[in-house]
Design a binder for these strands. Sequence first.
DNA 1: AGATTTTTAAGTGTCGACAGACTACAGAAG
DNA 2: CTTCTGTAGTCTGTCGACACTTAAAAATCT
Lengths: 226, 226
Amino acid sequence: MDSFSIEKPVRYYDQVYNTLREMIVQGDLKPGDSIYEARIARDLNISRSPVREAVRALEKEGLLAIDEKSRITVYKPTLKDIVDIYECRMVLESLAARLTTRLATAQELQNIEKTVIDSKQYLDVEGERNRQALIAENGRFHELIIKYSQNRRLKKQLRDLHSLSHYFRTLNFQGENREWIVYNEHQDILAQMKRRDEDKAAFMMNKHLETDLEHLKEIFTRYTKE
Amino acid sequence: MDSFSIEKPVRYYDQVYNTLREMIVQGDLKPGDSIYEARIARDLNISRSPVREAVRALEKEGLLAIDEKSRITVYKPTLKDIVDIYECRMVLESLAARLTTRLATAQELQNIEKTVIDSKQYLDVEGERNRQALIAENGRFHELIIKYSQNRRLKKQLRDLHSLSHYFRTLNFQGENREWIVYNEHQDILAQMKRRDEDKAAFMMNKHLETDLEHLKEIFTRYTKE
DNA sequence: AGATTTTTAAGTGTCGACAGACTACAGAAG
DNA sequence: CTTCTGTAGTCTGTCGACACTTAAAAATCT
């Protein structure tokens, strides 16, 4: 009897929200692209009501922008926006590193370590496939640290900030041996967490994101200057 | 010819959003209260569509909670929630203090100073009227610092966090001579900003919010323990 | 009366419709 | 050929309607 479970029908507006969000974060919808709720509703064979609600949520989240004429576009950050976002990320993710250093169990630290170890194997080999895997593994490193911080609000805030800057995460691995730098910094942070030195862990996380930002700035100006 | 200006009609869902938000933050709607979109629509003589959209935005903002049975209630933070929120506020508002110390013009610093000076006059006199004015003035102090930080993302994040903890701002002034403590701390922060010492300014802001939090914790446990 | 079932009222999720705003384009006027 | 104007199509903002769910009230049975 227990094996039966009634599924509540998933609301359309939740599905639309998740779908659109995914499309934006995954890059199927690019920054600046126009969105038409009428069109989306038609494509999905539903009415506009659920779509509108999803759009309102995504706008509040910052992923969609609605101009004064009600035109909807995918959020396209300026360089200043990216700096702003990163400044916030730096302090919040430092906090996450601090809390996790303080609270994480040995097992949890091991889970974090695993992402570092695993990412190592992708470093030596070339190829698009490996690059994607590496990016995913690096993302996981940050995710876990946030997760183990045990601060719900922090998770929410950083989730939003991440999705806002996700577009650039892919760009982040261009140039010199950027992957190695990231790898080393992750290792450093982990080391401090294992030593339970929360001040240092927070500090290194801050620094890590700062170099990230510096690198992004370059990429950005190079990219938009053509 | 220039004196004519066409006003765009304000969208209902914007108005509903603002109205509901204000009602929650001002305390007309208390944490845990139930909300019915149908009822709101009826009261305002509009259809449910704009109300629903406003509700979705407020849910994303965190001011409304929607349970698995679609019942809508005003967000009622637990003690842990408050701690979480304050931990975020501490790092973000420290950042605001830092940026403002770095970037604010002399005039802007003077505007901040004004809130401190003005609040002084409410300290000596008793009475509900003065208490409200004092709370408003103290709020303005924080507002201005955030505003002058010139970081849009930071402003948004803190706006949300403030509204989430607003319910407690009123409680914050109970007990001993709490007002004086706050007043002094504000003065200290301002002093560091005027000296353009951003490290110290950020540090003191952090400390200020920490004592705030400690005090809130007490109040909270006292309040919910009856 | 107390427990159980049935009715009824009220709320949510979704839909299709309609008016008004914008855009793009075709045709008229210079 | 360019510029203005009219018009058709598309999109948004809002509405009222309907099905379904939940919760409360009423009715029924023991």
